[in-house]
Design a protein around this nucleic acid. Structure first.
Lengths: 213, 213
DNA sequence: TGTACATCAGTGAACGCGCGTTCACTGATGTAC
DNA sequence: TGTACATCAGTGAACGCGCGTTCACTGATGTAC
């Protein structure tokens, strides 16, 4: 919740020890900033980056659109921050799954979480790759880099959790992430609950298989 | 190329045997229609449905945008037709791969084709699920139904090619398609050629694994 | 501690611009006799 | 076969509308003395 705003007052960065303390307004700005990123992370994943308007997002935080540019230089900058936050959430969930018990059963727990109806029907709180990967791949800007960086973080952490030879682990982690992303993409397009569940079941099976051998 | 325009003259449908023959203008319209769908299938996959304008697509076919509504009731209708055409192309490629030699090696050929650099770097001629799945899942209209229908066709044909018990084959086919879609999605976001190739290699390995057991 | 000044987060109107769609029009196509 | 009329594919201007961004302004916050 508070990892998304750095350098709100870059001007005072070196003198920070001299200034008495961040007063109400600075805290208020930081809080606004966090709420904007939070709302954007949800809205962008729900409606797409093109589909969600700056004014909508600002309204969702209880502000008007005019103030947006006190926080970000462009909508794309916000998208990059929002995507970063989406990956933070996802990695926190992975961390939580791994915290229970190490090894493969912990990864199985993460697989079940990722390939759940919950995830399929709540894109706003879900994986940014599924929601925004195709769109950002076309854009070539900050949001694209944010997705690439997030994918790197996710594969890195998954490979670490898989353990063993890290070259092999990264191969497995990449395959695993591919099934996860693909299965949720397909499940979100499924025309019926039945079709959705069939896809998710197939994904779970292959995802587990990806960890073996 | 000519499967996308039906009922151009629905009014005469029953009398068609009486009318001498489609004259120049009717053929011209059918040809325009096909060119519009063809251009749309490419533009939509390259830029997204929101990202590609009706005027752009019409210009790409050598027409002006005003005439568009003689062919389609809305942009979404065109998107549905374009997505259908995209799946036709993909299924034709699958058919071609299967035509060489039956069984698993034919599917391996298709896997290599799907998970090729060629496919990753040419979204305009690639799989509609990767390019448009996330966007259409949000839309809830004709284009969404077209993606769902295409996924159904693809999984059906893959299951048939896998053979054996069709319940199990459909499960395998769904898993296979999930890795394919996910791996290309990830590869398109990769920040370097190296990362892209690593993802594709991991995808190929897991895709082959999905056919075993 | 108190006062005068500067800063700046947030407001709300306005700006261009591009988009999907509509519409009056044109001229070739198709039809009726 | 030829003529008069109807149809309609395609044109290009115009319509609303929503969007990202800008800007003058306000009033609370923060600073200097």
């Amino acid at each position: 919740m508070d990892d998304a705003y750095h350098h709100c007052q870059p001007r005072n960065q070196d003198d920070e020890r001299e200034t008495p303390m961040p007063r109400a307004s600075r805290e208020a700005k930081a809080a606004s900033h966090a709420r904007i990123v939070e709302a954007a992370a949800r809205e962008f994943r729900e409606k797409g980056i093109e589909g969600a308007g700056v004014a909508d997002i600002m309204a969702a935080t209880g502000l008007t659109h005019g103030g947006f540019y006190r926080h970000f230089n462009s909508k794309d900058d916000l998208a990059a921050a929002a995507i970063g936050r989406g990956f933070d959430e996802g990695l926190a969930r992975l961390e939580a799954a791994l915290a229970g018990d190490g090894g493969e059963s912990a990864l199985a727990k993460y697989i079940d979480l990722y390939l759940s109806c919950q995830h399929v029907s709540n894109p706003g709180a879900g994986c940014p790759i599924v929601a925004l990967g195709a769109e950002t791949a076309r854009s070539g800007s900050g949001s694209r880099a944010a997705i690439a960086e997030g994918i790197g973080r996710l594969i890195g952490r998954l490979a670490e959790a898989i353990g063993g030879d890290q070259n092999d682990a990264r191969l497995k982690a990449s395959g695993l992430l591919a099934v996860l992303v693909g299965a949720v993409t397909l499940a979100r397009s499924a025309p019926s609950e039945e079709a959705r569940n069939a896809i998710l079941a197939a994904g779970r099976q292959l995802a587990r298989q990806s960890l073996q051998r």
